[in-house]
Design a protein around this nucleic acid. Structure first.
Lengths: 337, 337
DNA sequence: CTGTTAGCGCGTTCAT
DNA sequence: ATGAACGCGCTAACAG
């Protein structure tokens, strides 16, 4: 390709052998002081940059990880994904790893998706963000050799994947506790998409904790839909039609909470006097609604960091089985409750 | 590496030569119907996936583009970047391209950053998001051969880079027109970071258009700071201390507008009765503030698409000079004005 | 239409 | 400490 300078170029210019030049650049200690400096100087002078493809080919690795992010048509990407991605990039960079990104259209990763990036063979590991299912492809186990795959945000250990998630159960228990301590006895839960793992875990955590407190009888479940502002608005419309309205509303996500807040305020309700609202995610804008939203903050970028570290552990054979890492959330009590 | 199945494996199993197998897989039309089917079947059966490194090495290209996104410590990534990124990924996928992501810590891309990813040599082109400067590195021009670099969001044609941007000038003129039509005569501008291209263009567009309308005399410039909610809040605090307050506030970004809105409402002002507020970006949550924010929507994902397409044009020699593509924004008039 | 040959750029054996 | 030779897996010439 083109006139890119290569090892042989700097070999000619120095009179040294190509392999010596190679050593001087990758294993400087295995070469004399003198030649090392010479090579380094000429390399810099010529603007040598190396060829990753050749290096990858002979080394059998690429030092690259693939990140799969689900996207939904017409919907912006969740800030949670963005933050996880940031954590991944930071940690990857500190380990000298590159990050490849692929956005896939459905939340469920199928074997087809798997094939798509495997066909490239350019990565040493895969990070799956918020995948609901995982159909392991035959290409992943050619001869007992598998490409490491880690699930982030969703617990897919049952599919045999190392997973790193947030302690959502704890988060929603804390929210319930907080609301109960404020004196609330009648609750509503604004649901996200029923089929998602998140919805199931969060609703389950809420009901089981309410039950523990003897308050379950009064839980109203409001259908939201997708994790977006519009869904929160719809749920609020249903809420407003209720004969007896709960005094505390727990939303499955911050976007739902914001949409909900917007709509009940439009209808003239006072928050938190008429109804208290809590969300989940810890998006930055929740601190700037009026009133500011109580929410539980996900350890988003931390999950990204941890996932990259665990990938390293898999490469180093320190992790051998589908392990689960669960990171703690932190409750942010604000004016909406 | 490992026990990955390669061309030679399927060559043995079929009795065909390696190159025939290669052809059957990459140029199916240059091989007999019979062998093609045989090869494809055996390939599928063995779970052949190919080795990108080898392919890249011989082809001299990687079909991969690098995206550089600026990040700021302790600050979430702008949704605008995320949307641009989405556009890039979608368009890239439709062209069979992969996307590598690197987040760099400063807004200004220096030669060091350039070197970092060039050292990999794994990409065929670079997309620079919101870079303020560009120090072209010698590695970019080894022998009249350069790696194509496109600037997205910022016009860096003066650095010799093909650039794709939003028509910010138009956007802010439209905002001014809208506000003037509403009867406003006293304006404030909430500034973002003074050193950024965006702040300069947007402020300049606002003042020059106000001047055109004969309204410039009354413009108050409020210092915001970083493009975030907190800065908008600070600007609002300054605004509240003004002896005579402007009736219309134009914010350099939606986050500033939201923070501003939050704070003036806290102080008891009515929006838009006491003060009208407009932002810029078109973030989804602006439709759900109370009142909903008037804003001008950036063609974010479109910019990503266009950038990828232009990269293709550069590869095909259809673009030879630093071209500028400017995409139109769309004004969203809502209740805050 | 298929087999043969050669080589992409680099790292790592072997020798020396 | 350095040089020579080999091979990573694949594709593109060139024959046949």
């Amino acid at each position: 390709m083109n006139g890119r300078v290569k090892l042989s170029d700097i070999s000619k210019k120095t009179g040294l052998n190509v392999s010596t030049v190679s050593r001087a650049l990758s294993n400087p200690e295995r070469v004399s002081e003198e030649t090392r400096l010479l090579v380094q100087e000429v390399a810099a002078q010529l603007g040598y940059v190396g060829n990753a493809a050749a290096r990858n080919l002979i080394l059998g690795k690429t030092d690259t990880i693939m990140v799969l992010i689900p996207t939904f048509p017409g919907q912006p990407i969740s800030p949670v994904f963005t933050e996880v991605l940031r954590g991944i990039c930071e940690e990857a960079e500190s380990h000298g790893l590159s990050v490849m990104l692929q956005q896939n259209l459905s939340q469920a990763v199928s074997s087809d998706d798997a094939t798509k990036f495997l066909r490239t063979g350019t990565v040493d590991g895969v990070l799956l963000l918020a995948a609901e299912k995982w159909t392991s492809h035959h290409a992943f186990r050619p001869k007992e050799h598998v490409l490491p795959v880690i699930s982030v945000l969703n617990d897919l250990t049952s599919y045999g994947l190392v997973s790193v998630v947030a302690e959502e159960k704890q988060a929603f228990s804390e929210i319930v506790d907080h609301l109960a301590a404020r004196g609330h006895r009648h609750f509503a839960f604004v649901s996200g998409p029923r089929e998602t793992i998140h919805e199931q875990i969060r609703f389950q955590a809420t009901t089981s904790h309410l039950k523990r407190l003897g308050l379950l009888a009064d839980l109203v479940r409001l259908e939201g839909g997708p994790f977006d502002l519009q869904s929160g608005k719809r749920a609020a419309q249903a809420f407003l039609k209720l004969r007896t309205r709960p005094t505390a509303v727990i939303c499955c996500s911050d976007s739902l909470a914001f949409g909900f807040l917007h709509e009940v305020q439009n209808a003239g309700l006072k928050v938190p006097a008429d109804v208290a609202i809590a969300g989940y995610d810890g998006l930055d804008y929740t601190a700037f609604t009026t009133p500011a939203l109580t929410t539980s903050s996900q350890p988003s970028s931390e999950m990204g960091c941890v996932a990259v570290r665990m990938l390293g552990d898999i490469w180093n054979k320190k992790i051998l089985n589908p392990t689960l890492a669960a990171l703690a959330p932190s409750l942010l009590v604000r004016q909406s409750t």
